[in-house]
Simulated assay, not measured.
Amino acid sequence: MNRFEVITPADLASASRLLAQDGHVAFAGGVDVVDLMKQGIVSPTALVNLKGLKELGGIEVRPSGELRLGATAKLSEVAEHPAIRARFTAIAEAASETATPQIRNLATVGGNLLQRPRCWYFRNPDVNCLKKSGDKCYAFGGLNRYHAILGGDPAFIVHPSNLAPALIAMRASATIVGPAGEHTIELEKFFTLPTVDPKRENSLKPGEIITEVIVPAPSASVSSHYLEAREKQSFDWPLVSVAIALDRAPGEKTIRDARVVMGAVAPVPWRSHEAEAALKGGPLDEPRARAAAKAALKGAQPMTDNAYKVVMAKVIVRRAIMSAAGLEAA
């Protein structure tokens, strides 16, 4: 690991100016940044400490009912917040499934959204893969058990965030501050596919900082659920995850609207419009949930070692839909 300095900026504007400089990297919880440094993937000359900036902290449920998550809010705070658990259930469930209790007490909302892929080729300092300015993705034709089955070409990483699918399912937006000022972007549009640029996973530019995530108030008729499958029930990243948000007419079973967002199957949190269309306009039951799960994986293109993900994802999506509706899944 190279020598570096730690800089604690006085305010958000100073932090933005520092992060616009080459070799300056942001950290708050520091979980992924430290890993990347140890693995030789990044070699910053300076770490810009964001932990003390009050604009980035806190959790608030506003009088309007919308939820504000500061970028440096801890995942443990999100998982345990009573109002989030009651009204934004999928978000609390996703936060509670992340890593271990010790890491959740350190890791932040912004860090979870911005963490880099866990692909073993990308994380190997001796492999110059496509994401590190190389000319190929070694997962294609290589060891690809944990890689993408949707949207992967030309880089077959999967996005590792637990929180992102749940936030997108609940229609979240991110507020971003940078050299050009402040703007807001739908979180679904914040993440970018490798066809845009294989070396990055989001649209954040030099000097830009996520300050907060805003989730609009769900109506009383909306229910949500997050579910994932992983190899180990202790600390592990999901093999497949899904977040579901369902809007049912009060007193009726008909699905008026639905959001289905999968994780760990694509280079971005993968929203399935096909699954949503299969759910809308009718009463929810096991056959409809099964049809939606099948539609969610219609375009899947597994590689040599990860076809199991297609089967697993169908099961996880179906079960999550049923659970979001308060029904027992087979």
Rank of each mutant, 00 (worst) to 15 (best):
T195E: 14
T195F: 00
V196Q: 08
V196P: 00
P198E: 01
N202V: 00
K205H: 10
P206K: 10
E208K: 11
E208D: 10
T211V: 14
V213L: 11
I214Q: 10
P216R: 12
P216A: 10
S221M: 01
S221C: 01
S223Q: 14
S224K: 02
H225R: 13
L227W: 09
E231Q: 13
S234R: 11
F235E: 13
V240A: 04
V240M: 09
S241C: 01
V242D: 11
V242M: 03
V242A: 13
I244M: 06
A245M: 04
A245P: 06
D247L: 05
A249L: 13
P250F: 05
K253G: 15
K253W: 09
K253Y: 06
M262W: 14
V265Y: 06
A266P: 03
W270E: 03
W270C: 01
R271V: 05
E276V: 01
A277W: 00
A278Q: 08
A278G: 03
L279C: 07
K280C: 12
A289H: 05
A289K: 06
R290G: 00
A292W: 06
A292D: 06
A293R: 04
K294Q: 13
K294I: 00
A296F: 05
L297P: 07
K298Q: 13
Q301D: 10
P302D: 02
P302F: 04
T304S: 14
T304D: 14
D305K: 13
D305T: 04
D305P: 02
